[in-house]
Design a protein around this nucleic acid. Structure first.
Length: 545
RNA sequence: GCCUCCGUAGCUCAGAUGGAUAGAGCAGCGGACUUCUAAUCCGAAGGUCGCAGGUUCGAGUCCUGCCGGGGGCGCCA
């Protein structure tokens, strides 16, 4: 997905500086690149904002970059740009802007005015409809630890896309027909008779439990199906993951969608018969081999219902489909993509987010999970012990592109390895300031009447700088389908808040009233940022801890 | 063999559009509570960014090739 850049995502100051740069370059007779690149240097002495534009334009202008930069800086210093104190050149030809703290005071006002609802809410999606399909576990048992990453990631991605202007639906595809269901049924029936399931059946303790209340006249498959669905739904709800729709494969097949899909594909001339089977010409659409849709025995492969399902999604009016799959299904992407192309859908309308494996550890030793023996760690156990917030934050900390190691013992001990406490604590502390201020009857003036000038402490500026970054970060995170970037940001803001809290007292007696007023508003701005971040991650923002 | 993800501090991991002296947490070391929550803060220490080439004024980031690890390559799901 390529999200177009939007004005909303770009902090005001950036636009102003970029415009000034364009103007001065034009005055110097240099063709400015279409995008003026501005960034915040890592080092303070390099200013608040920096551009490499002289380096980038040097070749086209046929002039040494430092010379170009020097002229540019001179002109920019002469032009009076709001908030800009001075412009310097440095290194091979960087142009560095040093700004007055007033630019950050404007940031504070904007954050507070926008509030939790409006701050860093973008219009990149422009109301387009996106579906995120995730978890989609077989309805043959409880969810286990292996489902956690996809569940948490999918939901956070959905929240992120909502934040940037998509209308998002969350969907769970229920694979409720086929061999796995039959195996579960047999296993339940066996336990009900007091026997052991077959070697390749299901051996988890839950099968025995489900068998115990199997009504005499009930179909064991249907009984287990109902149990599994209920359990999965409850567990996900405990994690704060609620689906808009649970889509039944069985119902889809019964509706005739399979035949319809085959007809569709045949009409487009992308199928053929060979060796008694029906094939999809997926190699014409980027796959490395053609794929069987209907086997020579007349049964269809698992691919065909999946194609029918995605065809159904588009039929329901979604503009963008995102599937969240585990790394073990990675090889399946090209054929799915090929099938959808064959049906005439654009490559940019379908994306698959692959979540790499999670290595489960307990006190540093790897926990081997075995489906056969039924030795699974249930997701419910983790959520029960840790709580939804901490579970989510643990999984959302890292990019899903990276294999992840999660130590259950460390997690369950609720140690400082878990970032949720750090972030929530920052929020609780700010709330505490408000609470105590109210208790002491401290009145606060309106924002418009408050002079934010006293906010000059480096800790204060750091909080505001971090807040200023959220809109553009949100844009990038959405574009990259990377909610972990929001998790990193929120951690960063929490760090800035803790530092500020430590060095910048608000209610202490020796703080003058002007400063106190300004700091109360700073706390408000930071609260907005923490809440926006936590809400995208799906974690709560407690007012006390 | 082919495809794909990963390789950054002792450990777990961040590092958007290539930028200036590569960051954080945890563990360990040394400090800071008469205060709005010390679940916090500060300091020191800790790095051949897997290796080798290439592109570039500039590469952890882009390209190529290796090395190491995970996952996948069925008329299984």
């Amino acid at each position: 997905m390529r999200a177009p850049s939007t004005r909303e995502a770009n902090p005001v100051i950036r636009e102003q500086l970029a415009a000034a740069l364009r103007d001065e370059l034009a005055a110097l007779g240099v063709d400015a690149p279409t995008e003026v690149h501005l960034e915040q240097p890592a080092r303070r002495e390099h200013g608040d904002w920096s551009t490499n534009i002289a380096l980038a334009s040097a070749k086209a202008a046929a002039r040494p970059p430092r010379e170009l930069a020097a002229e540019l800086a001179e002109r920019l210093n002469a032009a009076s740009i709001p908030h800009v104190e001075r412009v310097e050149i440095a290194g091979p030809g960087f142009v560095n802007f040093h700004l007055a703290p007033t630019w950050l005071h404007e940031v504070a006002r904007r954050v507070i005015d926008d509030g939790e609802e409006g701050f860093a809410r973008l219009e990149i999606g422009r109301g387009r409809r996106a579906m995120v399909e995730f978890v989609s576990a077989n309805p043959t048992g409880p969810l286990h630890a292996g489902h956690a990453r996809g569940a948490v990631f999918g939901d956070a991605l959905a929240r992120l896309l909502e934040r940037v202007g998509y209308v998002v639906a969350r969907e769970f595809y229920i694979n409720d027909r086929g061999t796995q269901m039959a195996k579960m049924g047999h296993s339940i029936a066996a336990r009900a008779r007091g026997e052991s399931p077959l070697e390749d059946g299901y051996h988890g303790a839950y099968i025995t439990e489900w068998a115990a209340d199997l009504p005499l006249d009930a179909d064991p498959i249907e009984h287990g199906y109902a149990k599994a669905l209920q359990d999965q739904r409850e567990t996900l709800a405990l994690l704060g993951v609620v689906f808009d729709h649970w889509f039944s494969e069985r119902e889809m097949v019964e509706s005739g969608a399979i035949a319809q899909t085959l007809t569709d594909l045949a009409d487009r001339g992308v199928t053929y018969e060979a060796d008694g089977a029906t094939w999809l010409r997926s190699t014409d659409f980027g796959d490395d081999k053609d794929r069987v849709l209907v086997k020579s025995d007349g049964e269809f492969t698992y691919l065909l219902p999946d194609i029918a399902y995605h065809r159904d999604k588009f039929g329901r009016g979604f503009d963008l489909l995102i599937d969240v799959w585990g790394a073990d299904h990675h090889g399946y992407v090209p054929r799915m993509r090929a099938a959808l192309s064959a049906l005439g859908h654009g490559a940019d309308q379908f994306d698959v987010a692959i979540t790499q494996m999670v290595r489960l550890l307990r006190d540093g030793d790897e926990v081997k999970i075995s489906k056969r023996s039924g030795q699974l760690i249930e997701l419910r156990e983790i959520v029960d012990e840790l709580g939804s917030d901490a579970t989510r934050l643990v999984y959302l900390q890292q990019s899903v592109d990276s294999p992840q190691s999660v130590d259950l013992a460390v997690m369950l001990a609720q140690s400082m390895e878990n970032p949720v406490f750090y972030v929530q604590m920052a929020h609780a502390r700010l709330c505490s300031i408000r609470r105590v201020a109210a208790e002491r009857g401290i009145e606060r003036g309106s924002l418009a009447e408050t002079d934010l000038g006293p906010l000059r402490h480096e800790r204060e500026l750091e909080v505001l700088r971090t807040l200023n970054n959220l809109p553009s970060l949100m844009e990038i995170a959405a574009r990259d389908h990377a909610p972990h970037k929001v998790a990193s940001w929120v951690r960063e803001l929490a760090g800035a808040v803790h530092g500020w809290y430590h060095d910048c007292p608000v209610l202490r007696d020796d703080v003058d009233d002007q400063t106190r007023q300004a700091r109360l508003w700073l706390a408000d701005a930071a609260l907005v940022g923490l809440r926006v971040g936590l809400s995208v991650l799906g974690a709560s923002a407690p007012t006390s801890m």
